[in-house]
Computed example of a mutant assay.
Amino acid sequence: MSDVARVIVGVSGSLHSLTALHRAAEEARARGAVLVPVLAWTPVGGERNYRARPCPSLLRAWQQAAGARLGGALEEAFGGLPIGVPMEPMVMRGEPAEVLTALADRPGDLLVISTGRQGLVRGTAHRLLRGSVRRRCLNRARCGVLVVPPSTLHADLRALHRDGVDLRELVAA
């Protein structure tokens, strides 16, 4: 099965990752490839803290929560599974960049990632310490990488939010 084309996409459930997921589904459909949405997770507090105080029942709970988050993201993006695209969703333990680049290891693979959550304080501090997932994927990938910018809808939603518009009222109208 190693000669089957794959489009691997990092999914977190954020609006940015859902945009990348849609684009990855389009790419998979166009290439006749398998769509591999991947949600990478680490134990709460990080691997180092978990190794210091392991708790298998918590580990199982975190794994199940990650699986539910991936299922929720697929439901939000497609209302379930996208029609006409073979899919192999994966939940993998590890840092996102490391998991994605290890998985996207074939020359014919395409790794699809979003630009990420730019401008957030936590994101900024994390990027200073570790570098962005995007940058690490671009530096380490052994296949093609497609970086998907935010949808123009993201800017529209932010503008409405800044203006104090209640989106529930717009939907109800």
Rank of each mutant, 00 (worst) to 15 (best):
residue 170 L to K: 14
residue 148 V to N: 11
residue 105 D to M: 00
residue 88 E to L: 11
residue 140 R to E: 08
residue 121 V to Y: 10
residue 83 I to D: 12
residue 142 R to T: 07
residue 97 A to I: 02
residue 161 H to I: 02
residue 173 A to L: 13
residue 48 R to S: 09
residue 124 T to N: 10
residue 163 D to K: 15
residue 9 V to E: 06
residue 73 A to G: 11
residue 12 S to A: 12
residue 52 A to I: 07
residue 8 I to P: 01
residue 29 R to N: 04
residue 117 R to S: 13
residue 111 L to P: 02
residue 99 V to M: 02
residue 166 D to L: 12
residue 36 V to R: 01
residue 164 G to K: 10
residue 2 S to V: 14
residue 106 R to W: 07
residue 143 C to W: 06
residue 122 R to T: 11
residue 150 P to H: 14
residue 67 G to I: 03
residue 105 D to I: 00
residue 89 P to W: 04
residue 152 T to Q: 09
residue 62 W to M: 11
residue 5 A to I: 02
residue 80 G to K: 04
residue 97 A to L: 02
residue 68 A to H: 15
residue 164 G to I: 09
residue 157 L to W: 06
residue 166 D to S: 13
residue 170 L to I: 15
residue 112 V to E: 05
residue 163 D to N: 14
residue 54 P to C: 10
residue 24 A to M: 07
residue 29 R to H: 13
residue 135 R to N: 10
residue 50 Y to T: 04
residue 62 W to N: 00
residue 23 R to A: 14
residue 1 M to T: 12
residue 138 L to K: 06
residue 114 S to E: 04
residue 162 R to L: 15
residue 129 L to S: 09
residue 15 L to R: 12
residue 9 V to K: 01
residue 24 A to D: 05
residue 128 L to R: 10
residue 4 V to F: 07
residue 62 W to C: 01
residue 65 A to F: 01
residue 137 C to M: 09
residue 169 E to F: 07
residue 149 P to M: 01
residue 106 R to Y: 05
residue 140 R to V: 00
residue 23 R to C: 06
residue 5 A to Y: 04
residue 153 L to K: 09
residue 160 L to R: 15
residue 171 V to H: 14
residue 45 G to Y: 04
residue 13 G to I: 08
residue 101 T to M: 02
